[in-house]
């Protein structure tokens, strides 16, 4: 299997199929990054698409082809931050309702856990609770579960150590369990 570095070189030389392969490798990661930033799966898909396109546009500027993945994730973060800074961030709370993220929105609206639980089923609740986690814990859960990755993979994406990933996953799972058990009572 070709390395990212090889594929970037081929893509920069004009081989579209090489960029296609890079897209296949990194789409899940980019999507997880976007989901972690904007807390909406549907919006994350849109922003991830934009990020992949910007990666193609900016490929000539990538000086270290071996760092394609983190570089592309950096683009995704900037795309999300630009979106969050724009006026559309307020609108997404309304879009989130129509996109089936009503549980997340409702949970933020001050409802009691019982009221929030009454509105959504268990299947949606867990993802909604993930989206409500503080950013550091939300990111690590999303990166870990969007694809089969190791602590080192997640650590590289986040710029932290593998031990930190371990600690954050531990804490995130504990928070989720606590939150879900509180809703069930």
């Amino acid at each position: 299997m070709s390395s990212d570095s090889d594929l970037v070189g081929l893509a920069q030389g004009g081989q579209l199929t090489a960029y296609e392969e890079l897209v296949r490798r990194w789409s899940a990661r980019v999507l997880a990054v976007c989901h972690g930033k904007v807390r909406s799966s549907h919006l994350a898909e849109e922003l991830a698409q934009e990020s992949l396109l910007r990666g193609l546009r900016a490929l000539a500027t990538l000086e270290n082809p071996a760092k394609f993945g983190p570089w592309l994730c950096g683009i995704a973060r900037r795309v999300c931050l630009d979106w969050l800074k724009s006026g559309q961030a307020r609108q997404v709370s309304l879009d989130a309702m129509s996109n089936g993220q009503a549980d997340a929105w409702v949970a933020q609206a001050g409802d009691s856990p019982d009221e929030a639980a009454a509105r959504v089923d268990d299947h949606q609740r867990l993802l909604a609770e993930v989206e409500l986690l503080p950013e550091a814990y939300r990111e690590v859960i999303l990166l870990y579960y969007y694809e089969d990755v190791t602590y080192r993979d997640v650590a590289t994406t986040l710029g932290v150590s593998a031990a930190t990933v371990n600690a954050r996953l531990t804490k995130a799972r504990a928070m989720l369990r606590q939150r879900l058990s509180g809703l069930r009572r």
Partner: peptide, 12 residues
């Protein structure tokens, strides 16, 4: 979500 990631990749 993983399936969505695959669809995202293929659409790209």
């Amino acid at each position: 979500r993983r399936e969505a990631a695959v669809r995202l990749a293929e659409s790209a």
